[in-house]
Computed example of a mutant assay.
Amino acid sequence: MTDGTITTDVAIIGAGPTGLFAAFECAMLKIDCVLVDALADIGGQCAALYPEKPIYDIPAHPAIEGAALIESLARQIEPFNIPRMLGRRVETLKGHRGAFILGTDKGEVIHAKAVIIAAGAGAFGPNRPPLDGLEAYEDTGSVQYYVRRRADFEGKTLVIAGGGDSALDWALSLKELARKIYLVHRRDKFRAAPESLRQLDEAVERGEIEKVTPFQLKALHGESGALREVELVTLDGESRRLEADHLLAFFGLATDLGPVAQWGMDQIRSTIPVTPSTCETSLAGVFAIGDVATYPGKLKLILQGFSEGAMAAHAIHPIVHPDQALHFEYSTSKGVPNS
């Protein structure tokens, strides 16, 4: 970077797992790239929100925590010395395929021949329950929406609210640490992976988790931000109070594409449609991968984001090296190119 200007082949917006692997794939094809992320560290949601949450669908890893996955991906790209522009948000995109100009909120300018948007779900924040006095409990950590350190809940009584994978995953993960876990949902049925549902049934039968349905959150009770009880209510007006040290509320994330939404690409409900074979958006030379990308049959899995990163890198090769034919070789035969 010179005087706030960097020239590269590809600007990768988003340094989460998908962005990191896309950088590796670009490097393997001798395509220069730079990673840009609004967060101060690499890793995206895996590092910022779920560093200790086990992930079960990464090939060759029966289970791996989010932080460990990011560490491995960082080691994978380490030989290539890929520049990182962290703590910066890309605000503007101008130009065309082969000659884009991106501007950051810090005033820097990036010249790139192609762009990969790997921004996950965009800017994210929790969907917060509408409870009086909620902020005071958030300030003390009595109410949380992400689990960054499992050890913080050792010996504690937890009320976990939500009916999806996150609620079940954390209930199952924390049951051996916590003194007591209540799992609260407004319906008797949960929307989660079949294996998680099976494990939940077994944990309930063993008395490791108490399932509290069909209840919704009504109020929090405590003093000076220290939670003592969570009050619940049914649609019929039946109420119940649960002793609690912490409320973990998992009602999903509110997402926003931010400035990306103003760049002229087609959009569908905060996602960007792409051509499945290349991951190119409706704006030629701009590609989208990971959770932000959508197409028929799309699965929001990290492993699919990895595949999309590889496809985007191969589709970008003729933009960067128009005079070079790309003869695909397996990494086992070609090895890692010299950086």
Rank of each mutant, 00 (worst) to 15 (best):
F251R: 00
D323L: 04
A22I: 06
L326N: 06
Y50C: 00
I12L: 12
A119N: 08
E135W: 11
I77Y: 10
V336G: 04
R128S: 03
A161N: 00
G19Y: 01
E154L: 11
A67I: 08
G87C: 04
H61S: 08
G4T: 10
L242A: 06
A118L: 10
L172W: 03
T281I: 05
D152H: 14
S224M: 02
T294W: 15
L217R: 03
L49M: 02
T140H: 14
G164P: 00
N81Q: 13
A261S: 15
R187E: 03
A315W: 00
I58H: 02
A203M: 04
G309A: 06
E229C: 11
V159H: 01
P83W: 05
H314A: 11
L20G: 09
L73K: 09
G14Q: 06
A312W: 06
S270K: 13
G141I: 12
A47V: 00
A47T: 02
V336K: 06
G19F: 00
L39V: 03
G222K: 07
R89M: 04
G297V: 08
T2N: 15
A63H: 01
R97H: 06
R128N: 03
R241A: 14
Q324N: 07
Q216P: 00
G163S: 01
R191G: 09
D105M: 09
A119W: 08
Y145R: 13
C46P: 02
D32L: 07
K218P: 00
I101D: 14
A312D: 04
P79D: 10
T5V: 14
A60R: 05
P79A: 10
D105Q: 07
F287P: 05
L200P: 10
E195G: 11
E135R: 08
L177K: 15
P17A: 14
A249V: 09
A178E: 05
P62W: 05
M265Q: 08
L35C: 10
G141L: 14
K334H: 10
G103A: 13
L248G: 02
K113T: 05
V143G: 14
Q304C: 12
Q304K: 13
A74D: 06
D256C: 08
L220V: 08
A261R: 15
V204Q: 11
A288M: 12
I70N: 05
K298G: 11
S333C: 04
D32H: 10
F80D: 02
E135H: 12
G16I: 11
E91D: 06
Y182M: 04
S196D: 11
A60K: 07
T271F: 07
A244T: 07
R269K: 11
R84F: 01
P79G: 07
G122C: 03
T2K: 14
T213Q: 05
N81L: 13
I12W: 09
D266C: 07
M85C: 02
D9E: 04
E176H: 15
L49H: 01
S339Y: 12
Q45S: 04
I319L: 07
C279N: 13
P17R: 12
R149P: 04
G164N: 00
A74Y: 09
G207W: 00
I316V: 02
A48L: 00
D152G: 06
P83K: 05
Q76F: 09
R269D: 12
Y146L: 12
V286M: 11
D139P: 13
T294P: 15
L172S: 14
P296K: 15
